[in-house]
């Protein structure tokens, strides 16, 4: 089954990491990712730009309203996501724990994927 691991964290805090700390975290995450990739279980991975770069399209009106900023004002923001292959929830949680050890703080939301199109954009 495919799972999305949605990464939430306090953006202001992650933005206060020193470059060295950020690099170190990314390096540790890369080890976990490489491991998954070798097993053929790693799908698309994305780190999102800060929510200050975000725009929201509210569709309830006609025409839809374009708003600056993220969809919801929350304490923790969606900063990135992984798509992974896992046997079951336990297995997916195990991957999330591995990622969490590499990057402590914040939360991961583990969501089973319903429809998945691998897409066609080059990275």
């Amino acid at each position: 089954m495919l799972y999305a691991i949605l990464c939430y964290h306090d953006e202001a805090m992650v933005g206060s990491w020193s470059k060295d700390h950020d690099d170190a975290v990314m390096e540790k995450l890369a080890v976990v990712q490489d491991n998954l990739a070798k097993q053929g279980r790693l799908g698309p991975v994305a780190r999102l730009l800060p929510t200050t770069a975000a725009t929201t399209l509210r569709k309830e009106g006609d025409p839809p309203l374009v708003l600056d900023g993220p969809f919801a004002e929350t304490k923790e923001q969606l900063l990135g996501f992984y798509i992974i292959e896992a046997k079951d929830l336990d297995d997916a949680l195990e991957v999330a724990r591995d990622l969490g050890r590499a990057n402590p703080g914040g939360s991961y939301e583990i969501r089973p994927v319903g429809v998945f199109h691998p897409g066609s954009v080059a990275s």
Binding site: V14, G15, S16, W17
Partner: peptide, 14 residues
Amino acid sequence: ASDLAWIDAALISA
């Protein structure tokens, strides 16, 4: 070390 880095970042951003 990573604990302290976390606290540091928390204090700076707060």
